[in-house]
Each structure stands twice: as C-alpha cells, then as structure tokens.
C-alpha cells in the first residue's frame, strides 16, 4: 500500500523561473515562496484566507497562497508581485505609484495581483469593487486604489465599468 508523504519534491514555475523545492506536502504556498524561494513580496496578513495580502496567480487564476498546500502546486505556474515588472514597471504598478494606490504597502502586492488579473479579465467580476473585495486595505479607504486601477486601464486601453 502507498505510504502517506510527509515530504515531497515539487517543481513549480515562479515568475517564469522553474524551481524545485523539497517541503512538507501541507506546507503553504506562502511559505514556499517566502522561505524556500526567498520571494518575500507576498505578505501574510491573517493566515486564514481573509485579508488577501498573499494573493498570487496560480495557473493564471488568483488564489490565496496561505490556503494553498504544497501538494497542490506541483507543476503549477505562479506569478507574484515580483513578476509584474519586466524591463519597466507594469502600468498597474506605475499607476499605484502616481495615484497614491499604495500607502503602508503591506496590502499592495496582493492588491496589485488582483488588479492585474482584473485588467486582464474584466469579465471575471461585475466591477472593480467586486474584483478587489478580497484585498483589504486599512490605509487608503480604497478611493486612490480605484483611481490607480482606472488610470492603468486607460493606459492599457481597457474599458472597465464605473465603480
């Protein structure tokens, strides 16, 4: 009979880089990113899937890295905040910088990922408010985040509904 695993080696692609790690199969994707791979941009605000600071894209879809176990990320493609900028800042990053979308910055990585996803897939939610409802921010009151995303949408030539 098969033995249950308490250690497994997995291969995943993070921001385009393929990485092999050996971890407990229930280790959180969050800890894999932060501790095994050293990408500390993804933050832990609550550890229970509520605050959204650990939002990353897995296989193109937003997930919460604190609720995603290692055994389910083998072979996955993950994008974190560190993967948004290429040669220059992504327009969403640039807009957050200019429009005051980031204050203390701790929710920013997750917020940017959700905003990035929304701009790529505006059909995923009724509006921006719904798309970002899983990313809680305690500094901005969200108003400047809305204006940041709208500015980025303009620059990307995307139309999004009014909030």
């Amino acid at each position: 009979m098969t033995e249950p695993l308490d250690r497994m080696t997995l291969t995943l692609t993070v921001n385009g880089r393929t990485i092999k790690v050996a971890v407990h199969p229930m280790a959180r994707l969050l800890d894999i990113l932060r501790e095994e791979i050293g990408l500390t941009g993804t933050k832990e605000g609550c550890g229970e899937g509520e605050c959204g600071a650990c939002t990353v894209l897995m296989n193109g879809v937003p997930v919460l890295a604190c609720l995603t176990p290692a055994c389910q990320v083998d072979g996955a493609e993950v994008v974190t905040v560190e993967g948004l900028a290429k040669e220059t800042l992504h327009p969403i990053q640039q807009a957050f910088l200019e429009e005051g979308g980031a204050q203390c910055g701790i929710c920013t990585p997750g917020m940017l990922i959700s905003a990035f996803y929304y701009l790529e897939h505006p059909e995923c939610a009724e509006n921006l408010r719904e798309a970002l409802a899983g990313n809680q921010c305690r500094c901005t009151g969200y108003t400047k985040i809305f204006s940041s995303v709208r500015k980025a949408a303009e620059r990307l030539g995307k139309t999004i509904p009014e909030v």
């Binding site: 993804t42 905040v81 900028a85 957050f96």
Partner: peptide, 10 residues
C-alpha cells in the same frame, strides 16, 4: 512617495 517603488515591486 519615495519608498513607493519598493512597495509596488514587493
């Protein structure tokens, strides 16, 4: 904000 660039890049 001067530190903003680090914040948006993680």
């Amino acid at each position: 904000r001067p530190e903003g660039i680090r914040k948006v890049c993680g």
